[in-house]
Design a protein around this nucleic acid. Sequence first.
RNA 1: GGGCGAUUGGCUCAGUGGUUAGAGCACGCGGUUCACAUCCGCGGGGUCACUGGUUCGAAUCCAGUAUCGCCCACCA
Length: 917
Amino acid sequence: MATETRPTTEMSPVYKPAEVEPRIYQRWLDADVFAPDGAGSRADGSKPPFTITQPPPNVTGALHIGHALGSTIQDVMIRRARMQGHPALFVPGLDHASIAAQVVLDRIIAKDGETRDSLGRERYLERMWLFINETRDVILDQERRLGLSADWGRLRFTMDDDSARAVRVAFKRLYDDGLAYRGKQLVNWCPGDQTSLSDLEVVAAPTTGTLWYVRYHFVGDDGTSDPTDTITVATTRPETILGDTAVAVNPDDDRYRHAVGRRVMIPFVDRIVPVIADPVVQMEFGTGAVKITPAHDADDFATGQRHDLEVIDVMTDAGRINERGGPYAGLTREEARERIVAELAARTDLAKAVPHQMILGRCSRSDHVVEPRLKTQWFINVKPMADRAMAAVREGRTKFVPVRFSKVFFDWMENIHDWNVSRQLWWGHRIPAWYCPDGHVTVSAESDGPSACDVCGRPSAELRQEDDIFDTWFSSGLWPFSTLGWPDETPDYTRFYPTSVLETGYDIIFFWVARMMMLGEWLTGGEPFHTVYLHGMVRDPLGAKMGKTKGNVVDPLGVITETGADALRFALIHGSAAGADSRLGQSRVEGARNFANKIWNAARFVMSARPDDVAADSPLGLAETHLLGPAEHWILDRCERSIVAVEKAYAAFEFGEAARLLYDAIWGDYCDSYLELAKVGLNESGAAGDDGDGGARKHAIWSTLTWVLDRYLRLLHPIMPMATEEIWSRLPHLATDPELLIVARWPDATDSDFKPDQHLSDGVAQLIETITAIRAARAESGIEASDWLPALIWLPEGAGRDAYAALEAAVGRLARVRPTLVNSRSELDAEGARGLAVITATGEARVLRSDADRQRERARLEKELRAVESQLAAAEARLSDHSFVTRAPENVVEHARRRAAELHEQADALRARLQET
RNA sequence: GGGCGAUUGGCUCAGUGGUUAGAGCACGCGGUUCACAUCCGCGGGGUCACUGGUUCGAAUCCAGUAUCGCCCACCA
């Protein structure tokens, strides 16, 4: 109920977001409106829940511009749903960001001369918890400053106890289902971060390397070799020679038929290995002979398995040559390569070296060259899960916005490889697998681990838990349901899962979206969300990616402080479309700030224009229809159309379009046109000569001003929540309205019984056209703005003429003339022969000016005539085209006819006038 | 190598078959109009990348080309 007293503080001429925004946000918190079941909630149970899944930001992070865009879009959706009466749930959260957080902490402890190893696992993790307890509120406060209406009472963290349990239960399920397995496989190893990586964390870097041609010497049965009897292999990685266990050629390669089955000597390590035949070898590449290093190359590993070759790992975790590398042990990969190439050259075993274009895998985080290494780790066979996730999209249970990303999704899903989830890091969920001295594996979902070995029954005391932790995306992948209580069937889980919309950036489709879909389908039996809305990247004004190193980042907090969160939100939304990158610069933000200020001032005027006999706390409501004039019909008509168009845009996830529609409607229709018309109406009503009902008319105009502004504020609230809330709090409300706009009803064309009269509305549009034409004629004729001239106006029978009487004063004021309506065209020239001619498609006028410059007037009219004639010619050409008239739809032809007739008349009028001038 | 996207006024972008292609910024002219100079009024500026096709009609649909950008990819 609107029982609260409206703010009586004066409205300053400039909108001050810094004063308004924190206060408004606090009001929302106090009113408990963010929770779907909070005290201030307006959901009445008649509508289904609406849930947003947001990507939880890094616990050590700060708000960056991409995050601001995503969060704003999420908030726009949740606010609209809330106003529509859905129980709207927006679970805020934080991600522990395993490796990213460790990198940050490592840097910090380095200042104290400490390292991960110097502290040890236990003390390191203690430091981490201390650290994130300091940082965790930073990002949350920043989200609040942005205005996010998230349910803070449901805040979740991927390292909290409930998430930890979800991780254990999920992994145990996957293990029991045979999808999670421990195996010795080649993994992507980052020697810098000293952990394995998933395929996604390896970025392909095109590089110009070298292809070295190396001679291997054949070895006879007696172990001797002939220096001239060699086979030349081509390699880009000479240092892996130390781990070679074969040389391979294609079985169809006649050049090497004799070589297959013979043996060669691997230099430096003096290992004798066979020459084998395998179809993997391409005859055209290099020499057609390739060295095989199963421990350091994926292809070679597969080849090795086929031929039962020995696997010799010659490297350490830090990327140095290990003791298997003979004389090179202890050197880095790079040093070893250099020395080996030099030594081969010295031995004349280096046949040649040519530059070679190749793709190098680099660690996405540290940029180190990734080393394929053989490790025993945990993997997840994701294929069966991928099949279900794909089914969800095929069946329409999950839709991508924009839809083209479903193709990207399918392409990846169809070619998916097993997911290596082991990380040799400390900050994260430790894999809940225990090993007994006999090598048995026990996976347990219990918080304190298994009581005994599943296989041999050894007691827990003898079991040792896996040291590795999970890939951080494993816990993130459970987010939509782990945050709602899964694996328990909690009330939240039952009520809000599956969630409605996942909103995130297209850059994490594979990392996160796909994994949530796979894990969600497999573990919960249903899709985790019905819609995936993907936003693009926010770039700088030149289109470059924003990056700290480039120094071109727009700091969202700086913008919030300077121009307000609403301005930032509007700027971000206004310039964005689903899946498309956008550019953000100063001018866009300023435009949004100006828009907020514009609305503020419009409201300021409306409040100051309240008629004296209207009580300050009177309720919102349109006056009776008979009291509404043409201008009221026009703006109410425009407003109704805006409501429909804006709602359509929101519903189609076209938030940028919604923002544009509102900008144009509020600035153009409401401020530029209606407010100006209303001013005149408010001034003249009640003045001498009106019909005696001036007070009621004034009241009617003011009711329309407040009514329409109220509609627009509701529609704009999701995008600019704080300014709209503040302004709305000062306006009259409906008796049924709550105290806060955030929970007020979403507008709907059925909110009032009023139906605008289209005829009157059209009439006003024509008068606005006439006003604009007079203004243009004045400006082009160089008439002083302060020069109020008499004007004759002629309008044909119809809408414009019918609306005229009520708006004569407004036409006069806006066109800066003293108008007189005449009854026929001939009167125009009889009285106004020397005036400026104003000729529109729907009317004509003369601005009377005795000293009009004839030359200038002729030039102006000629220019106009040329424009009209060229349009007329085009219109007539179309109409004389038989196939157009017979084949185009009726209404299009009819429209063209009417248009041609109008143009014809306008051209005639212009010609007639030119004759006279 | 495969895929996707973009190409519209000086800049940033709307506009997905039907009047005269729009807006903001920038630009020019005018303005102490009692909400707002974070403003108001008026104006200049575009062969909608190119070629061909479909259609009565194409910025819009189709094919191809060019340029730019992004994503994916185990070949030494």
